[in-house]
Nucleic acid binder design. Structure first.
Lengths: 139, 139
DNA sequence: TTTCAAATTTAGATATAATCTAATTCTTGA
DNA sequence: TCAAGAATTAGATTATATCTAAATTTGAAA
């Protein structure tokens, strides 16, 4: 199976129609684990054909997040970043440049059920903060 | 020591001058562990005297975050939220309403140093996601 | 294949959140 | 008291994201 078919299949098995614009967003995220912003994705997709408007790029990111194929990472004071949820991983966010990097996955202990109360837990994510390698060297 | 004196002292020992506007922001956050947005803090402070402009509210939040007295929590698709970093805690973010709630603290395992590489780790935070008690009951 | 309703896309306007500007006021220490 | 730096201000501006309404595309039913 080609990559293209694999992407198409993963979209459709998640209940998302595989349109050309949606495919382009997904393909870009799968070959770029650099956690681009929506603006960067919009720009990248528009270097190809078919093009995609800003609204469509945002709509498709929202649809892919809802389908669980893409994760949105909010960063303090900066634009949100996106990545394909292929392999489980945690995130490192740089205090200085705001870049988001993948960190190896490991299981996180669940909160005590008394502490959880009536809440329904969907996932636990670990965010590491500090200076990324590039910014650490510069300081 | 009164609460007011304690707040003043904690600001000054963190190298932040205790102005009336800055005090108001800090006092509001200390008596409200509901993780208000900047807009909510701005509004709350302006029900008191002296008032504070929007720019000052944002400036002071930034100063308090830099001093380590306040934490900013970015939430996907919503305004950032703030809380006083009094006691260590983790956060629960509701998928549905976006509210941020405190969760009991427990130590998080450090990433393996090989995985960390040249990065400098400052802190590890755990974010739980799902439905808060209120939204869980409604679904 | 043809047809049509629903889904998707679009450009541009609008909304929301946060920051910037430059003038003013306040505070502190000499 | 005075000067210099720090803080505050109103309003403009920027950055990010969403909305609108019209046009286009899609896929399933006929």
């Amino acid at each position: 199976m080609t990559d293209a078919e694999a992407i198409k299949l993963s979209l459709e098995s998640s209940g998302v129609r595989c349109t050309a614009q949606r495919y382009a967003v997904m393909a870009f995220l799968m070959e770029n684990n650099r956690h681009p912003t929506a603006a960067e994705i919009f720009e990248a997709v528009n270097r190809m054909d078919p093009r995609s408007s800003r609204a469509t790029t945002y709509n498709n990111l929202r649809d892919l997040v809802q389908a669980g194929l893409v994760r949105e990472v909010a960063v303090e004071g900066r634009a949100a970043r996106f990545d394909a949820t292929g392999m489980k991983h945690h995130h490192f966010i740089c205090d200085h440049c705001g870049n988001v990097e993948d960190m190896d996955w490991y299981d996180v202990p669940r909160p005590a059920s008394v502490s959880l109360g009536e809440r329904i837990l969907r996932e636990s994510e670990l965010i590491f903060r500090g200076l990324c390698a590039k910014c650490a060297l510069r300081q």
